[in-house]
């Protein structure tokens, strides 16, 4: 079995005195698309924040063989663990191209940045058309594409996408799910955090189900889809 790209074990984290996560364990291997699903307030975003070191956490947190617990958020980012945040968080008054350029902020391999631009524009032709447009004037779907593209410009090893489908039309979500498959083909591992379980299961290899700060189910999505509890709670079918 290939060594894990991201390895989390007995992780607990919270805000101030309030614990949110307890005993979370998760493994992501290179080239996988892994999804984490769970309802609102289950702790999904908190887990992402703990991984990126924005909030403190106790437990095992290893990425690409490095212990993350001693690192700052910038250092984690520098290792290639890049987030596409919930709500996109674009630089609304900058052009699409400047937003993408901000993605390369911490890169030092200037010569290869042009290549990344080309690859990203190939992935999202609509962004190439709109490269001089102000990001705030894009449609919701295009903004999400721009946010994912900006994350890709940072040359990530693992791209985590938080609530990708939020507020988007189903047809746009399908299109973005297809892009995640393309991204994986380029050798980038993806962690997709979603409330839309149907969408997430359609593209992921494996999944984790989170409830009140704990992982309650895990496995291949084919198995999770058959699990009666998951079907009842998240898919709304008996």
């Amino acid at each position: 079995m290939t060594p894990a790209l991201l390895e989390i074990a007995s992780l607990s984290a919270g805000y101030g005195e309030v614990p949110v996560l307890s005993g979370v364990a998760m493994v992501i291997r290179p080239g996988e698309i892994v999804t984490m699903v769970g309802s609102n307030g289950a702790g999904k975003t908190t887990l992402l924040r703990a991984i990126s070191r924005v909030i403190g956490a106790r437990g095992t947190l290893r990425f690409d063989g490095r212990d993350l617990t001693a690192l700052t958020p910038e250092q984690v980012f520098g290792l290639g663990l890049v987030q596409v945040p919930e709500g996109r968080q674009l630089f609304d008054r900058m052009t699409v191209e400047d937003n993408l350029r901000m993605g390369t902020y911490r890169r030092r391999d200037d010569a290869r940045i042009q290549q990344s631009f080309e690859r990203v524009y190939q992935l999202f032709p609509v962004l190439a058309e709109r490269r001089q447009q102000i990001a705030g004037s894009l449609s919701g779907g295009e903004q999400q594409m721009c946010a994912i593209a900006r994350g890709l410009m940072a040359a990530p090893k693992l791209l985590t996408v938080d609530e990708m489908s939020l507020g988007l039309a189903p047809v746009v979500v399908d299109q973005l799910l297809g892009v995640l498959g393309e991204i994986r083909k380029q050798g980038i591992t993806v962690l997709l955090v979603e409330q839309d379980v149907f969408a997430a299961f359609s593209v992921a290899d494996r999944g984790y189900v989170m409830e009140t700060g704990r992982i309650v189910r895990e496995g291949a999505v084919a198995e999770l889809e058959k699990d009666p509890e998951v079907r009842k709670a998240y898919l709304g079918v008996q």
């Binding site: 700052t72 958020p73 945040p85 674009l90």
Partner: peptide, 23 residues
């Protein structure tokens, strides 16, 4: 400079700047 680009990113959207690895 890169430093200035970071400051402008902070002005435009501080959360996004953080996500892009700017301290």
């Amino acid at each position: 400079s890169r430093f200035g680009a970071g400051l402008v990113a902070i002005r435009e959207d501080e959360d996004a700047a953080q996500v892009m690895g700017i301290n």
